[in-house]
Amino acid sequence: MRQPQSVPPKPLLHIDGLRIAFKAGRQWREVVRGVDLSVAPGEVVGLVGESGSGKSLTALSILQVLPPEARIAGGRIVFDGTNLVGLSRKAMNKRRGRDIAMIFQDPLTALNPVIPVGRQIYDSLRTHQTIGHKAALERIQELLEMVGIRHPRERMRAYPHELSGGMRQRVMTALAISSNPKLLIADEPTTALDVTVQARVIGMLDRVRRDLGIAVLFISHNLELIAEICDRVSVMYAGKVVESSAVETVFETPRHPYTRQLLRCIPRLDGASGPMPTIPGLPPRFDSELVGCPFAPRCDEASDRCRAAEPPAWREPGHLAVCWEAA
């Protein structure tokens, strides 16, 4: 299958014009409205946005585990040369958990509470791979050491509730990478954790992906965190990618006012006082009609043109911004 636009190197995951509709009463409303996104092998791509921006739905649609009220309304999700949209359940199950793995904000819901964590990794290994009993046990130890769990032999016997939040996220990651996936989707993996624990889990993720060369799609609302581990970043607002580029570019020369304002809002340890910078207003409700640029009502640079018509995409090699003022 040929890619409509080649992004060197050949992307592992290429999302093209993805639209997701959500059921609101009797109507279907598009909450993801044409998202393009690509992840190259071994690359870490950040997806950032406020709640309701559609970033999590985008992630869930890759594995096709959308909630029942949501469905893919259009576009393609090409993974490793295969369009995942419209793939049979059986073919999708083969990919899920093997080629693509996912870790969640709350690992407790993703781990079986009544089975020791080692056993869960063991079961996953034996179902996805042809591996003997002894080899599997050795592999579990190796995996747990890789995610920074000391004394893996003892920890294997623990039940999920006996582990701390940070430990659980490590176990979840070990489980996710046990099948040697090509892509790891991390949906707000540290949001529920304390900062000190978050720092260690991020360090662990960074090392794991370096050691194994796994591509990571990292979803977070925390731009600072994204900057620490991602190579490229896409900023989503109201169901669309509004800016996308290398992480340095987005931080140093952002072209979209939303990105700029978002960067300004992050509370920093610089000793500043006085009112905190904010973005006035609220993001549009998912069931409201959008006219013009959806960010225009909150934008400090908006003109009449922004309120009247949807902005065009401004492109430069490796940099995209969807804004009238970007050019």
């Binding site: 920074g148 900062v195 000190t196 978050q198 720092a199 260690r200 991020i202 360090g203 662990m204 960074d206 090392r207 370096r210 925390n222 731009l223 600072e224 965190l225 900057a227 620490e228 581990i229 992480v247 340095e248 931080f251 140093e252 992050i266 920093r268 340890l269």
Partner: peptide
């Protein structure tokens, strides 16, 4: 000090946690 060191700091903190 540990709390301060753990706060994410954007580009300045890139890959600084490789050896936790």
């Amino acid at each position: 000090r540990q709390l301060l060191a753990s706060v994410p700091r954007g580009l300045a903190g890139r890959h600084r946690r490789l050896e936790p």
